[in-house]
Structures are given as C-alpha cells and as structure tokens.
C-alpha cells in the first residue's frame, strides 16, 4: 500500500503537471480537491485516464468519483479493491 501511494503521488504530479510539488508535499490523506491540493474538474478527468491506463481500473459509477478521488489513500484503496490480478 505504501509503495502504491508513493507511485500514485509521482504519477499524479506528472499527469497533472504539478511541477511546483514533490511527492513528499502530498499527504496520504490530504484532500486533492477544494482547499486541499486545489485540483479541478479537468484534473478529475486526467485522474480517470491515469487509473485506466496505469492500473486498468475504471470508475463504474461517476457518483463515486468524489469518494474515490478524495485523497491518494482513497485512490490507492480503490485500486487495490478493483484491480484484477
């Protein structure tokens, strides 16, 4: 889980062009949207693409998006729960 979260932080910085940040600047539980990391709706679409391409994981129900993308930890938990071996 720790390695997955570390990988996710690097991938999020790369995919979302967050060049002002380093992986250690992103907390495991830190909210990614709103007052947290300040991501927006376009970033949410990029995160969906990232999960599909890197982990073959799809978001089946769009209404689950805010819960899944709450933090790096919640994304990692979703990947673990939905990734096929």
């Amino acid at each position: 889980m720790e390695q997955l979260m570390a990988d996710l932080k690097k991938q999020i910085i790369e995919a979302l062009n967050l060049k002002h940040l380093k992986p250690e600047n992103i907390g495991d539980d830190q909210p990614l949207f709103g007052d947290g990391l300040g991501l927006d709706s376009i970033d949410a679409l990029e995160l969906i693409v990232l999960l599909q391409q890197n982990y073959k994981v799809k978001i089946e129900n769009p209404q689950d998006g805010p819960t899944i993308f709450h933090s790096v930890k919640s994304i990692a938990e979703y990947i673990r729960a939905n990734q096929t071996a």
Partner: peptide, 9 residues
Amino acid sequence: TSSSPALFV
C-alpha cells in the same frame, strides 16, 4: 495513444 483532457481544453 491516449486521451488527455488537460491538453484538449
């Protein structure tokens, strides 16, 4: 090869 919403906008 892939889609990029951030580039598309």
